[in-house]
Design a protein around this nucleic acid. Structure first.
Lengths: 221, 221
DNA sequence: GACCAATTGAACTAGTCAGTACATTTATCA
DNA sequence: TGATAAATGTACTGACTAGTTCAATTGGTC
């Protein structure tokens, strides 16, 4: 099987070289752990299985992350950090309100569709009542910035008479998220009950278009 | 703690009386199991814990359900059957299209909000790739009938010129479900990240209203 | 090249948990 | 009432699994 695609980051060490590359090992473990947690949840995941997916040993997992929950928390944080960096790529403030809202929705939809691992981890975390998000401060700021972006777009839209007033940014965000999340989170049961694969192409584009339309129509004056 | 509210169904036995009431025991076990599975997922649930929640013993669980998965499957089926019976209470065919669609959406929203156990079990099942739904034929028919109801309403709406044509019933259903499901399934992480409790009243009504509006506006010509 | 801290390997363990063995009770029916 | 089947209680076990022990190695520093 080989290692999970994480080339050791030789640079970014203290000052001199370092061939043992603990950062690479950490990273390698997190990647393996994410795969296992995504596949089997927190309780279902087996530390030995994670170790097997790794280029290193179980011993290292405990050395770097303390225990299973510590590893899980590290996986969660790494994932949220990744989103933050991707999200910065959007430049919504410079777009017309309608265009900006459409792009945000489409982006969110695509991100969910393209990263089912993220969706499944969030599901797992919610099953556990999000009690591992409690400890992480890294996460709160991130999502609040989404609300700021939405508020900016929405306020401009209202000012131009395009959007109707009186809607909360949080409601816009929840609507977008719901329409993006559900197809991915419930893909298995949808396939089982309706015989349709929401991850395959004809349906995917259709849902994407409808998601954007739903959000815009909900906001239009 | 006492038993979980399931009074033994004395009647409905073969022909004569029967004081041992195995039906009641079965039911009692299923109730206890649902609570445990909802709380901890399939892998996280402990059979001994389920037994402890029961008025009977672990021995009975294996006697009636074979193994842990068999019990889980029984809980799933019982839950879907319950929905089916509730769903029959709606009389949508006699309502005007717009009114019917609004009522269906509001009903679906309320059902999800009022039955978080259902939502969490569906999450659990999706984490496990819905592989336990495979065996159950009981479930397929049920949800397909929802599509029929939607198609009826939608077609009438299109015929009257109220709704725009070209939308699939499945898309309507997915939109309604997404907007109803997400608030409940992700309640914990939403509270953690935004500090808002989607289960509490001011927000709940707001989301309900917006869900209905979103669906209607999506369909309107 | 000796000393130190970071890093790693292999085997082990204590506890947990799904599932079982076996005996016993309860009701049915002839 | 006695034979038969359904239902149940107690105690146990074998496998699994998170986490550990203890020693060894590696690279850097002086």
């Amino acid at each position: 099987m080989g290692r999970t695609g994480t080339a050791p980051t030789r640079a970014s060490r203290r000052s001199t070289g370092w061939t043992q590359d603990p950062q690479g090992v950490r990273r390698n473990i997190i990647d393996a752990a994410r795969a296992e947690f995504v596949e089997n949840g927190l309780s279902g995941a087996r530390v030995d299985e994670i170790a097997a997916r790794t280029a290193t040993s179980k011993r290292m997992i405990y050395y770097y992350f303390g225990d299973k929950e510590g590893l899980y928390r590290a996986v969660l944080e790494e994932m949220y950090e990744r989103i933050r960096s991707v999200e910065r790529g959007l430049d919504l403030a410079s777009l017309a309100p309608e265009e900006a809202m459409a792009r945000l929705t489409a982006f969110t939809f695509d991100y969910h569709a393209g990263n089912p691992d993220f969706v499944r981890l969030v599901m797992v975390e919610n099953i556990h009542h999000a009690r591992h998000l409690e400890t992480s401060d890294k996460i709160a700021n991130l999502n609040l910035s989404v609300l700021d972006a939405i508020r900016d777009i929405y306020d401009r839209g209202v000012a131009e008479g395009l959007f109707r007033p009186g809607i909360e940014p949080l409601d816009v965000h929840l609507t977008i998220s719901a329409l993006s999340f559900y197809n991915v989170s419930n893909r298995a049961s949808i396939r089982q009950v309706f015989g349709q694969d929401m991850g395959a192409e004809p349906l995917l584009s259709r849902r994407r278009t409808l998601a954007v339309e739903a959000v815009l129509r909900l906001l239009k004056a």
